[in-house]
Amino acid sequence: MKLEQLIINNIEFNVENFEEKIITHSTTGEQLKKIGFAFSVIGKKEYNLYDLFFESPNFELTIVDTNEKLKMKNISHSTFYQAAEISDDTKVVFRIKLQQEPAKEKELTKNQKLMVNAVNE
């Protein structure tokens, strides 16, 4: 299967080099997806827009082919371009790595908050 489209926070991305791995979360034991992909933009304005977008720590990702929706955390994003600096006609390639968030860890966090609140009272 060659995946070509993802939706991240309601924005459609035409992606290249899509990779998906299943990993086991170290504390919850859950099977989680780790996703990597690339996409390209042209120009400084688009570069700045997407660079800022991928500064966010969390994303909601939809895999268009399967309509699977995942809560993801940002592992890394990097850019590549062949120029001294980015101009209005520079092609910039983004490489993105995201990892699914464990469902069990969030429950643990809620319980920890309840315990902290009980201690503070």
Rank of each mutant, 00 (worst) to 15 (best):
H77C: 06
S56L: 12
F39N: 13
A83W: 09
F13R: 05
A118G: 04
N48S: 14
S26K: 15
Y81S: 03
V41S: 02
L70S: 02
K34V: 07
V15N: 01
T79E: 06
F39Q: 14
Q5I: 04
N111V: 03
K71W: 03
V92S: 01
E60A: 02
L32V: 08
K44I: 14
I22F: 02
G43T: 05
S40E: 15
E46Y: 15
S26F: 13
S76G: 12
V119S: 05
D51F: 14
K21E: 15
I35V: 14
L6F: 02
Y47L: 07
S56Q: 15
D65A: 12
N111F: 02
F53G: 00
E105P: 00
I42Q: 12
L98A: 02
F18D: 07
I11A: 10
I42H: 09
A118S: 11
L3W: 04
V119T: 03
I96A: 01
N48F: 12
E60H: 03
E107A: 01
I35M: 14
A118M: 09
F18M: 06
V92Y: 01
V41K: 02
L70H: 08
V64P: 00
L6E: 04
L32F: 02
S26Y: 14
E16V: 03
N10P: 01
V119F: 04
S87Q: 06
G36V: 03
S87L: 12
F54Q: 00
L114F: 09
I8Q: 07
I35W: 08
E12H: 06
E107S: 06
M72T: 09
E55S: 11
Q99A: 10
T79R: 06
S26I: 11
Q112M: 08
E30I: 05
G43F: 09
P57V: 04
M1S: 13
N17T: 01
H25A: 13
H77S: 07
G36H: 01
N58E: 15
I86W: 01
I23W: 12
G36R: 07
E121K: 13
P102E: 14
V15W: 10
N111M: 12
N14Y: 13
V15E: 03
G36F: 02
Q82A: 13
I42W: 12
E121L: 14
I86K: 03
T79Q: 06
N58T: 13
L52P: 00
M1R: 13
V64L: 06
F54P: 00
E16A: 08
F94Q: 04
F13Y: 06
E4S: 11
T24Q: 09
K106W: 00
S26P: 11
I11D: 11
N111S: 08
E107D: 08
N58G: 09
A118N: 07
E107Q: 06
E105N: 02
N117C: 03
E20D: 08
I63Q: 03
T27Q: 14
Y47K: 14
H77P: 02
L3K: 06
F80N: 10
F37Y: 13
R95M: 10
N10M: 09
T79K: 07
I75D: 12
S78T: 12
E55M: 06
M1F: 09
M72A: 03
T27C: 10
A38M: 14
R95P: 04
K91E: 14
